[in-house]
Design a protein around this nucleic acid. Structure first.
Lengths: 365, 365
DNA sequence: TGTTAGCACTCTCATCTATCGAGTGCTAAC
DNA sequence: GTTAGCACTCGATAGATGAGAGTGCTAACA
């Protein structure tokens, strides 16, 4: 790939991003400062197509970037640009939004992302049980019913209603809560689901009833607030690539059906820190072949919390979107860092996560 | 409106519901056992159009029911049919679903409704502060932070992270919680937001910091789990009336933007108990002119809890949908009644809410 | 007076055709 | 290696046409 091919590819991607129309040799020659004629461009384009960077919708139309073409564009074109430059507005708003609770902050950040990009914003919250138990109470309701409340150190609570065979006194319930609370505080919820609780059940036979219910509560997949946040789903309908309902429906339904996307976002991607771009079929969901997913991790001083980003048509302004996502994720991270207060100490993760340098050497497929 | 007109109107609505195509005089004469010729039907149809029950998309197409036509159909055609007859399956599933918590039950019911109808299901949860305080705790986190947890008698919890100027001891926090809990237990959360808390603040000066935060928490609009549940939004894209994105987008965006629909559902409709059908422009949202909304209230022994129903194209099988919605709402009510256990006493609301008899005499607009 | 048959008319929709234009690939000249 | 020219392809667009469905009206009929 020589320099001129590179410039042609870049011109085509840029133009296609802008117009959503296949771009021809003439346009490239005219609008982008290549100092050669259309015929020359044509030759280059034919080569680029052979190499797999371009595709032709039909014989006599212009060229369109392929997944590989976008990938190359994203990997090479953006290095060197200052990441946090523009789009300070959305970032500023995230920082200005004072939310003490992680889920509210993330929700707000996702909302801003979807507004700023006109795409669908998506984010994962930890909630997978990684948070630690801050407290456990058993609150009496009417009669023989009570509520078990697990409070995590992220400030969120999970609850479950339980019914006793007998009607225990409020004092009893309080004691149960206190006893369990003292013994389990500080444990990650996920760990509780496993052995720790079982051991306790043996030790404190009388509390078995409650302990069993707590186990059930922990086993419930979405016991906490929704783990995957989606915002601005209807934005996708604005995009020209989804002009016909069928295609839009496929994507939206895939998103609604399995929250598989969440699974994917949740996976700790091996060597990829920070900003991540998945283009077309790089997304492991057949229905998303025409989409791209741009995400970044956000973190609290304790470590990585989740991912936040946007899902849009494959033809998107990667420069802008990547900056925006990186900026917003960084702002969330920053907000989480500040929230813990200055006494926290340690370097933490206030700086936005570094962009991985080896993004390029992943498989093409 | 004589008997024959009535039968013609019914035939047209039935046929249009089934085919989604404007229906002509010939079809009516042939397929529906009217013993007159197409020409006669034509005359009747012209009359019905004059009276406002039918509309003509263009000069030489069949007729389509107007809002008024649907309204008449719904009001007259359905009286006498056994409401809970068919569609027992979805109802059975609601009853089989053992959810101790109201919000889970409602969510599940909405999901079943959307699956059964292929429309969008929508439901409101009380959460507007009507639930009573079952307990209040202040759970310490790290450093000077703590979580205020309000547990409602519906088994749900609201939380807010607060930060103290000083770092209070765990004992102090526990005491604060206990003190507030004892004084406020049993109060509706909505009432707390008003005077009751203010009075307490004066009485217990030292707790002012916490009390203020509790006030803030109560003021947050969606501090609890989402108040309006929506399920199966993409189902709408399946409907032929939303074949072009623009129309679908209008509706979905209206739904996403303002949760105004929730507002509307939340309004205690004056004399209308139980099942409620809003057709086309009867829905006070311009964007929903091509939709109909069928909802029913569900209740717990304590009283009405909310509404649940579906939003679909105006051309829907009202008989089936109304039965289904009524059945599911009834099942939810029943489940809520049983959940409280047999010791509850009193007649309660186990039976599904009665269908209002005076649905007909509302303005035509 | 209500009902029916017949008929001319209207309007949409699908199909077909011709045309236009953008864009390509190839060849030959520079 | 680059460029100009040219024939060719193919999709999109615009009319033209015909079929079909449905109506409204009129006149005949019970």
């Amino acid at each position: 790939m020589d320099l001129r091919k590179w410039r042609v590819l870049r011109a085509i991607v840029d133009d296609y991003i802008q117009t959503a129309e296949p771009v021809g040799s003439r346009t490239v020659a005219r609008k982008y400062g290549l100092e050669v004629s259309a015929a020359t461009i044509r030759n280059e384009m034919a080569d680029l197509e052979d190499m797999g960077y371009l595709e032709q919708p039909h014989t006599s139309a212009g060229r369109v970037p392929s997944d590989k073409g976008y990938r190359f564009y994203v990997d090479t074109l953006l290095c060197g640009t200052e990441p946090m430059a523009a789009d300070a507005e959305a970032v500023r708003q995230v920082l200005a939004f004072k939310a003490a609770r992680l889920d509210q902050l993330v929700r707000q950040a996702a909302h801003l992302l979807s507004e700023a990009t006109d795409f669908l914003a998506v984010a994962t919250q930890p909630g997978g049980g990684g948070e630690r138990l801050a407290g456990l109470q058993v609150v009496p309701l009417h009669g023989s019913e009570a509520v078990v409340v697990l409070v995590g150190d992220d400030g969120r609570a999970r609850t479950k209603v339980i019914r006793f065979a007998h009607s225990p006194s409020a004092r009893d319930l309080e004691q149960i809560g206190r006893a369990l609370s003292e013994r389990l505080r500080g444990q990650p919820l996920r760990a509780l689901a496993g052995g720790r609780l079982g051991a306790l059940a043996a030790e404190l036979g009388q509390f078995r009833e409650v302990i069993d219910r707590v186990k059930e509560l922990l086993a419930e997949p979405d016991a906490g607030p929704e783990r995957v946040v989606v915002d601005g789903a209807t934005n996708l309908l604005k995009q020209p690539e989804f002009r016909e309902v069928a295609s839009a429906q496929r994507v939206l339904q895939a998103l609604e059906r399995d929250r598989l996307l969440g699974e994917m976002l949740g996976l700790p991607l091996p060597r990829l820190n920070g900003l991540e771009v998945a283009i077309g079929r790089e997304i492991p969901l057949e229905e998303m072949a025409d989409c791209s997913l741009v995400t970044a991790v956000y973190a609290a001083p304790g470590g990585v919390m989740g991912r936040i980003g946007v899902l849009g048509p494959r033809r998107m302004d990667y420069t802008r979107v990547m900056r925006l996502v990186e900026g917003v994720a960084g702002a969330v991270t920053k907000a989480l860092g500040e929230d813990t207060g200055p006494e926290r100490g340690g370097p933490g993760l206030d700086a936005p996560p570094k962009r991985s340098a080896d993004r390029r050497d992943r498989g093409e497929r």
